[in-house]
């Protein structure tokens, strides 16, 4: 392998490690919320610093590779994609930490039944699965799997759109659940952002592998049809 190939392989491994950490952060923030486990939530907050460290390290590595190896073609596209995926993952890490902070700060317990009724748990599971699948698509350079993310993000969007009604019903049923309902609404909003970040990542994977730019296309166009360069 050339020195550049070695650098790129190492960078790819580092991104995957960051991905696994962010995935674990999102998973733990869910567990912390469902079980109202403040200790686990605190762990997520502490580990957020590791996510940030990964982001800085990957940024620096990309900068060094640009400066020292002058990458072109697929290598250049990989590095450009890596820089953006790095930012997207860091933001998902922020979202997990933000939810964990709700758990730490909240004085009210989160009712699992309320989370079910508002589809929050389903949304959480789908967000985590999407994140896992984007990682698989990245590792295997699988653009078919990457394209499937666009449709699945619609599921998160639908739950988010329905949230005012579903959360409103919780409040109507029991006005004392207002603080909890507002937390649930905020978490739904945050998880919707996870879907957006995952969609951005999927676009970067397709750019890297196929040199196709899908940004600013509607998701209905992106899923199945061929987009011109």
């Amino acid at each position: 392998m050339t020195p550049l190939e070695n650098e790129i392989t190492a960078l790819k491994k580092e991104l995957v490690s960051m991905w696994i950490l962010v995935q674990s952060q999102l998973n733990k923030s869910k567990e912390a919320m469902v079980n109202f486990d403040k200790d686990l939530a605190r762990e997520v907050l502490i580990k957020e610093k590791r996510v940030n460290s990964y982001e800085l390290k990957i940024d620096r590595d990309c900068e060094n590779i640009f400066a020292l190896h002058c990458p072109v073609a697929i290598d250049l596209r990989f590095l450009l994609a890596a820089l953006k995926i790095n930012t997207n993952l860091e933001r998902i890490g922020d979202i997990a930490a933000g939810i964990a902070l709700y758990v730490v700060e909240s004085t009210v317990n989160f009712d699992v039944d309320a989370m079910e009724k508002t589809s929050l748990i389903r949304m959480y599971d789908e967000a985590i699965n999407i994140l896992i699948d984007t990682r698989t698509a990245f590792e295997k350079e699988d653009t078919v799997l990457a394209r499937s993310i666009f449709k699945r993000d619609d599921v998160l969007d639908d739950i988010n759109v329905a949230a005012p009604v579903s959360v409103g019903e919780l409040i109507k049923a029991d006005i004392s659940s207002l603080p909890e309902a507002l937390y649930i609404l905020s978490v739904i909003r945050k998880l919707e952002r996870v879907g957006d970040q995952a969609k951005n990542i999927a676009e970067e994977i397709i750019f890297y592998v196929e040199a196709k730019i899908l940004k600013h296309f509607e998701s209905s166009q992106m899923g199945n049809t061929e987009i011109e360069d």
Binding site: T2, L4, V72, A73, I74, L76, R77, A211
Partner: peptide, 17 residues
């Protein structure tokens, strides 16, 4: 050519592979 060459041989050459 330097962002998305059409031929695999070109890509291999410019990326040092």
């Amino acid at each position: 050519m330097f962002t998305n060459p059409a031929d695999q041989r070109t890509q291999n050459y410019i990326t040092g592979r």
